[in-house]
Simulated assay, not measured.
Amino acid sequence: MSAPTLSTAKAAEPRRTRPGEHGGRPPGGSLKRALRRNLTAHGFLMGAVLCFSFFSWYPMVREFLLAFQKTEDGRTTWAGWSNLTTVFNDPAFWQAWENTLLFTALALLLGFAVPFAVALVLNEFRHAQGYLRLLVYLPVMLPPVASVLLFKYLYDPGHGLLNEFLAFLHLPQQQWLQDPDTAMLSVVIAATWMNMGGATLIYLAALQSIPGELYEAAELDGAGLLRKIWHVTVPQTRLILSVMLLMQIIATMQVFTEPFLLTNGAGPEGSTTTVVYLIYQYAFNFNNYGSAAALGLVLLVLLAGFSAAYVRLNRGSDDD
């Protein structure tokens, strides 16, 4: 057996890395790359934080300060609780809250249930789903003014489409936006049609994530359509439903666009005056920015308290 040659010994000997040599890269290369990557990520994050602070946090802080200030002759002085006293003593304050709560209740009956029902129907289609989704989401893509003009034509007391349909059925015609009894309901119907597309697509995505085996097991147990919806669909989408319910309540409590464009804000006998429209009146019609900020602060505190209580109750139910 021949002894190993020198070349063989050198080949078998493991290669020793020279000091400072790491695959041809300097020792601090990976650290520099990680630092550069983190700096880039933090740069984008800082931009988002600055935008959020400037457009969200600063207005809230400014509103809180303005709620306790009064501006007269270009001079700003502390007013204490006088702005809140002015707001609470205004008769329109309580009417605005009553109208807002009525709008929220009607919007939950229609705007929360109808998108979920539409999503259930769309989920049963196996063809043309993309077209149907576009059709449902189309009202959201329309400008609000265009949608309002459409509903103004529908609600026209003279030759509106709804009254023409009632006349065809030999039913009495209605003053949809001019009657205090129907004005709020008309606004809710328009708002539901204008905003239901996004909620429908969210519900549809949640429905499509439910395993089909659950429905098959329910069918084997003899469950009908309603029982499958109640015992399978609703429990499987409970998280989405609870989140959408919270968002629906917060959004409807801040309604402004639909009553402002459909009924000029106040509506007949103040039947569509909402809290946000009253804030608008204080600020831009009465030039009382302190009272407007005070009313906005009241709305903010109530919505924040309701959101915290709602999340806490849902967390408790999830733990159970």
Rank of each mutant, 00 (worst) to 15 (best):
R315G: 00
R18P: 05
L154M: 09
R15Q: 10
L185V: 07
E216N: 10
L154K: 01
A48Y: 13
L65M: 03
H159A: 07
Y277I: 05
V121F: 01
P143L: 05
K152R: 10
G24F: 02
E13R: 15
V187S: 00
W81P: 03
T182S: 12
M184R: 09
A41N: 09
Y131R: 09
L106Y: 13
F44N: 01
A117I: 09
A113Y: 08
T233A: 00
E219T: 06
F284P: 03
G28D: 15
L245C: 06
T252G: 07
S7I: 02
M60Y: 00
D320W: 06
A105S: 12
G296D: 03
A304G: 03
D320L: 09
L106N: 09
L161P: 02
D179S: 11
F256M: 10
G130D: 15
Y155H: 09
R126I: 08
D73R: 12
L110G: 03
E219C: 06
G222M: 11
G111A: 12
Y310K: 01
A266H: 00
A146N: 05
Y282E: 07
L84P: 02
L295R: 11
K228C: 07
S317A: 11
R25C: 05
G80I: 02
P172C: 13
V301S: 02
L262H: 13
N99V: 02
A79I: 09
F93R: 08
F165H: 12
P139K: 13
L108F: 05
K70Y: 06
Q248H: 09
N264R: 15
G23K: 11
D221S: 10
H127D: 15
T76S: 11
A223M: 07
F125T: 06
L201P: 04
I250M: 00
L102N: 04
G222A: 12
L225E: 02
E21D: 13
S209M: 11
F256G: 10
F54Q: 10
V114L: 10
M46I: 08
P139M: 14
A304N: 01
L109W: 14
N285Y: 08
L150C: 12
G47C: 08
A128G: 14
T40A: 05
D156H: 15
L110T: 08
G222N: 09
R126M: 07
L31I: 06
P259L: 12
T200W: 05
L120P: 07
N89G: 02
H42K: 08
L246E: 00
Q69C: 01
H159E: 08
S242N: 04
L169Q: 06
T5D: 14
D221H: 08
D320M: 05
N285A: 08
M184Q: 09
R15I: 10
L262D: 09
F284M: 05
P157H: 04
L134Y: 08
G23S: 12
D181N: 14
G305V: 00
F168H: 15
G197T: 11
G29R: 05
R18A: 12
L122G: 03
P259E: 11
L246M: 07
L108E: 01
I240N: 07
A206G: 12
T85K: 11
T273W: 13
V136L: 13
V121C: 01
E269N: 07
A190Q: 02
T273Q: 14
L50V: 14
L154P: 01
